[in-house]
Simulated assay, not measured.
Amino acid sequence: MNVIQIKNPGPMMTIQDLGRSGMLHAGVSRSGPMDAPSFRLANALVGNPQESAAIEFAMLGGSFAASAPVRVAVTGGAVEVKIDNVPVAPWESHWLMPGAILSIGVVKGAVWGYLAISGGLEVPVTLGSRSTHIRTGLGGLEGRCLQKDDIIEIGEAFSSPLMVQSQPRIFNGDVIRIVPGPQADYFDDANWQIFLGQSYRVSAKRDRMAQALEGPQLSAAGGHDIVSDGTVFGSIQVPGSGLPLVLMAERQTTGGYPKIATIATVDLPKFAQTPTGAPVRFVSISPQEAEDLLIAERQASKASLASLSKKPDPA
């Protein structure tokens, strides 16, 4: 049995795949990666199917050892990666040999990083997914964040050369596109002018469930309590504090605060990767524009995965 050992875990380090669908009625949100394109790319670089389970971490990667030769790739942001203290590049795959230590440093210019290992991580499938859902203790490794000395079985890998992504993803700009939410009419023109006309900052109060924003307060007509209704990844709630709260991959499935808007799916990875303290500005687009943008992004992502190139043989 081939395994990967967590020598030192980074913050909020969990096992994720592409997520758990069809369980909203049971109060279980999809979970899955906060930045799905970076997750898919990490798997592609090591020759895994896109849905293979990999490791997600926040801000700092930690260190790892493998019991057998495996290909590894780290994506998500500009991050220092070393194998036995020798620097290697992120956004491409490398061999990790038994006895060697893979070290992943601080994520720069982003928040969430991904470590894919050839063969994927063979934790049990729970409700159709290997994704960790911390809130309910489901999936992953015992439904929790990874800890020091955890050992995870690795699946059988497909034969594949070492690969490189020639143009790593860069999250530039502060504009986040939104569509009006189900309670958009709870907010009058003056509040919409504030919401769209002024900047917010991403608060340090953030995790896989939600990201709080700091900035101008909003006021909902009739108050900030509603009959609970469904939420989605990217719902922007406005609680009694008046400060927007963006629901993320591991959100609750219903909420009792009015939702002024929803972040366009195409911009969810960019928003999730916005560093703490960085500004964001919201721009309203139509649902049709949001759909068109998502289709174009998925086509570009597919082309990017198809354009991965084989690394040259070492001299």
Rank of each mutant, 00 (worst) to 15 (best):
A53N: 08
A54Q: 08
I55T: 04
I55R: 01
E56W: 02
E56T: 07
F57I: 12
A58N: 14
A58W: 06
A58R: 10
M59S: 15
L60H: 13
L60Q: 10
L60R: 14
L60D: 12
S63T: 14
A66R: 02
S67E: 07
A68Y: 06
V72N: 00
A73D: 08
A73I: 08
V74I: 11
V74T: 05
T75M: 10
T75C: 11
G76C: 09
G77K: 10
A78E: 14
V79H: 03
V81N: 04
V81E: 01
K82R: 13
K82V: 07
I83M: 08
I83F: 09
I83S: 03
D84N: 14
N85Q: 15
V86Y: 07
V86M: 13
A89R: 10
A89E: 09
A89W: 08
H94C: 05
L96K: 03
L96M: 11
L96G: 00
M97I: 09
M97H: 08
M97W: 09
M97P: 00
G99W: 13
G99F: 14
G99Q: 11
A100N: 13
A100L: 04
A100Y: 00
I101G: 00
L102P: 00
I104P: 01
I104R: 07
I104D: 07
G105V: 07
V106W: 12
V106Q: 15
V107M: 13
K108F: 06
K108Y: 12
A110G: 15
W112G: 03
G113W: 04
G113V: 03
G113P: 04
Y114I: 09
Y114S: 06
Y114A: 03
L115H: 05
L115Q: 01
I117W: 03
S118M: 08
S118W: 04
S118K: 03
G119I: 01
G120Y: 02
G120I: 00
L121V: 08
L121Y: 06
E122K: 13
E122D: 12
V123W: 02
V123E: 05
P124V: 10
T126M: 13
L127P: 01
G128W: 07
G128Q: 10
S129R: 05
S131G: 08
